[in-house]
Simulated assay, not measured.
Amino acid sequence: MALAKGAATINADVVSAAFYLLSGWQEFFSVERDRHGRFPYSASVQQQYSFVALPVVNYYFDVLKTAVEHVSGQALQPRHWQGAAFASFITHDIDSLHGGWGTAIRRDLRHGKLFDAGRALLGKATGRPAPWNNLEHVQAETTRLGAPSTFFMLSSSQPAPNGTANADYKIDSSLLKRLRQLEANGAETASHGSYGTAADVTRLREEVGQYGSAGLAGNRFHYLCWEPRRTPGVVAAAGFRYDSTLGFAEHFGFRNSYCLPFYPFDFERAQAHSFLEIPLNVMDATLHHPNYLQLRPAEILPAIKPMFEEIERFGGVATVLWHNDHFDPANTTTGPHQFAEIMNDLRRRGAVFLTGRQIVAELCGR
């Protein structure tokens, strides 16, 4: 960029480059899909040029900001989130409430705790709540660490036609009562659209209808399914105020190379969609799953800290997904200890912790 008195020359088309990344152009016009119908990280420019953990669009906009400030002679003030430099969105996809017995029994046997293993077996046989039936415990832990939780609840217990599992629980009156109590204590309930609903607005509406007249503000699709030619329209037609699906399952970082919420582009109408996308930055399974990064516990925080530094720099939102089953003490790889390390780093940086509804209210005033 060349600066002169009253003028600035940018020798690159940063607007087109920003639009290409932020709009998801590469996904919309690509035929590459994985077995879940998702645009794969391996086909992305982020992987090709190794910038997935860098919010390139924010840097492009920073160039424009510098030019505007120079020409106008006035500084553009950075966004603040309730007085904080950046925000964090702590979320939990609830895929299972009745699992975890096998994990607990194997852990006890591995440590020679035969009595505890027997007690777990008896608990399973007598119908005691499973180790992963832990919504209240998850909220207590996030509250202890200074954040409200947003619970993305799966509303279908029927497997998908291809056999992919959905929830192992049902949205019944007992569970709804628990969710209302969690909300009274500061949590948010959101939709975790079941496998297949990313292309089926009728099913998605039916699922959301199970929560009554209160309505749900946000959604994230199971398995992070997102078909760019259809899914944005489904989210908009279902009436959600925000979505938080757009992150790569295979790698932490910025799927659209941007660290702030944004309105997805509607390619058919050449305008913005009506809902806000709150990008997903890091998921527990990404960090250690055998198909993904396979980081050791001590490697997790050092790997993602530079990403948090970028979000802090640009006043963005750090969205963290930690499934409820990863709060099981038996998980020592991406478990409660690693979650606490991440939370403590975000707190040290001065993040304000908000629910999805609160983020929408901050940005949109509604």
Rank of each mutant, 00 (worst) to 15 (best):
290 P>R: 09
37 G>S: 03
147 A>S: 13
174 S>M: 06
17 A>E: 04
281 N>G: 09
243 D>Y: 04
324 N>W: 15
62 D>E: 11
26 Q>V: 01
41 Y>H: 07
94 I>N: 08
360 V>W: 14
174 S>D: 07
92 H>C: 15
305 K>R: 11
45 V>M: 14
319 T>Q: 10
319 T>H: 14
237 A>M: 06
308 F>K: 00
181 Q>K: 12
319 T>I: 11
152 F>W: 09
341 E>K: 13
97 L>W: 05
311 I>C: 11
280 L>R: 05
242 Y>W: 09
306 P>E: 00
100 G>S: 07
303 A>G: 02
184 A>F: 02
157 S>A: 15
5 K>I: 12
173 S>Y: 04
89 F>Y: 15
236 A>R: 04
36 H>P: 00
294 Q>E: 03
339 F>I: 05
180 R>Q: 06
304 I>F: 10
155 S>Y: 01
65 K>A: 08
266 D>R: 11
264 P>H: 12
136 E>R: 12
282 V>N: 05
25 W>G: 02
33 R>A: 00
92 H>V: 15
48 Q>F: 11
206 E>K: 11
234 V>E: 00
49 Y>F: 15
102 G>R: 10
192 H>I: 04
78 P>A: 10
332 T>M: 10
301 L>P: 00
106 R>C: 02
170 K>E: 12
14 V>W: 11
254 F>L: 06
204 L>N: 12
180 R>L: 10
347 R>H: 10
54 L>A: 07
33 R>Y: 00
158 Q>A: 15
156 S>Q: 02
90 I>K: 07
89 F>G: 04
15 V>N: 06
312 E>R: 09
58 N>F: 13
17 A>H: 06
93 D>Y: 05
294 Q>K: 12
242 Y>K: 01
44 S>H: 12
161 P>V: 02
92 H>E: 10
150 T>L: 12
208 V>S: 14
88 S>G: 08
134 N>T: 11
318 A>S: 14
161 P>Y: 00
236 A>W: 08
99 G>R: 09
48 Q>M: 09
11 N>P: 00
343 M>A: 15
219 N>W: 02
155 S>N: 03
102 G>F: 09
291 N>V: 04
218 G>A: 11
97 L>E: 02
358 Q>L: 13
166 N>L: 06
134 N>I: 12
60 Y>A: 13
120 A>C: 06
55 P>Q: 08
